[in-house]
Simulated assay, not measured.
Amino acid sequence: MSTEWKIDLFAGLSERFGVRSLIIETAEQNMTAADLKNHLMASYPLQADILSISFLACNHAYAQADSIVNANDELALLPPVSGGQAEKPTEDEQKSSLEQWYMLTNEKITTEEVLAKVIVPEHGASLAFVGTTREWTKGQRTVRLEYEAYEPMAVKMMKQIGDELAEKWPGTLCAITHRLGVVDIAETSVVIAISSPHRASCYDASRYAIERLKQMVPIWKKEIWEDGSEWKGHQLGPWNPDTPLADFPDET
């Protein structure tokens, strides 16, 4: 008896295949993430190049090569990309917290609204990183950007960034809102708001947050030019979202 697997696709992968999901059949109900990718590359040899550099996500988390995945799991293939112990929150409280601090939206972003989430009396420093659509890059004119995300996993990964900041710079608060859909020239695509007791950690945490977002969060942008378009991912070299961010790469 064969087993049916469904793997969702995003951004350039979806465009390359011309579908939003791949349906394959195997004899196995369980296999490693590496074996599943190898099966896909064997089934679609013409797309093996992009499949080989994509990451498998299982139930909204990155799956390591030796991780066991099941045909009943929620699977997605992601191309390169953007005091005391409290009581454990309920699922509804966790969802509410994620929606408040880490958001994806098709509406225009107001910087002040995101920044207001992290301003608290005990913090003496706050700032907002605001990413906007740039018109010219290396002599090429961008008409607009189009953003797409694996939404439930993107929110989960943004929260992980906030957790990492709190561990590296204790007391730091973080809120992130990212646009989806069409973002025109000079419009805001992302706001990362940071607050901290002192300004030095506020600066450092803000830089870390935007680089980490570009490295690990499954958000992709499609650059639309006057004469073509291209999907862009994290653009930080070989893509491994599970690799700790050791230093800050230079931007061009």
Rank of each mutant, 00 (worst) to 15 (best):
L9Y: 01
F10N: 12
G12L: 03
I24L: 15
E25Q: 15
Q29P: 03
L36A: 06
K37W: 00
K37Q: 03
N38I: 08
M41I: 06
Y44L: 12
Q47A: 13
Q47R: 07
L51C: 11
I53F: 01
I53H: 08
L56P: 11
C58K: 14
N59L: 06
A61Y: 05
Q64C: 03
S67M: 04
N70I: 13
D73K: 14
E74N: 14
E74Y: 10
L78I: 15
P79Q: 07
S82A: 11
G83L: 09
G83S: 12
G83M: 09
G84Q: 15
K88F: 02
E91S: 12
E91D: 08
Q94P: 00
L98T: 06
Q100T: 15
L104N: 02
T105P: 10
K108E: 06
K117H: 08
I119W: 01
V120L: 10
L127H: 11
L127C: 13
A128Y: 02
T133C: 12
T133D: 01
E135W: 00
T142A: 11
L145Y: 04
Y147E: 05
E148A: 11
E148V: 14
A154W: 02
A154N: 07
K156D: 10
K156F: 09
M157P: 03
K159A: 04
D163W: 10
E164C: 04
L165G: 04
L165Y: 07
K168V: 11
W169D: 01
P170Q: 08
L173A: 08
L173I: 06
L173V: 07
A175M: 12
A175T: 05
I176T: 08
I176F: 09
H178E: 03
R179S: 13
R179T: 08
D184A: 15
A186P: 04
T188V: 15
V191S: 07
I194W: 13
I194P: 13
S196W: 07
R199V: 03
S201F: 10
Y203C: 02
S206N: 10
R207E: 12
R207W: 07
A209Q: 02
R212E: 12
L213I: 05
L213V: 08
K214I: 00
M216Y: 05
P218K: 08
P218R: 06
W220C: 01
I224E: 05
W231P: 06
K232F: 01
W239M: 01
D242S: 14
T243G: 01
L245F: 03
A246H: 04
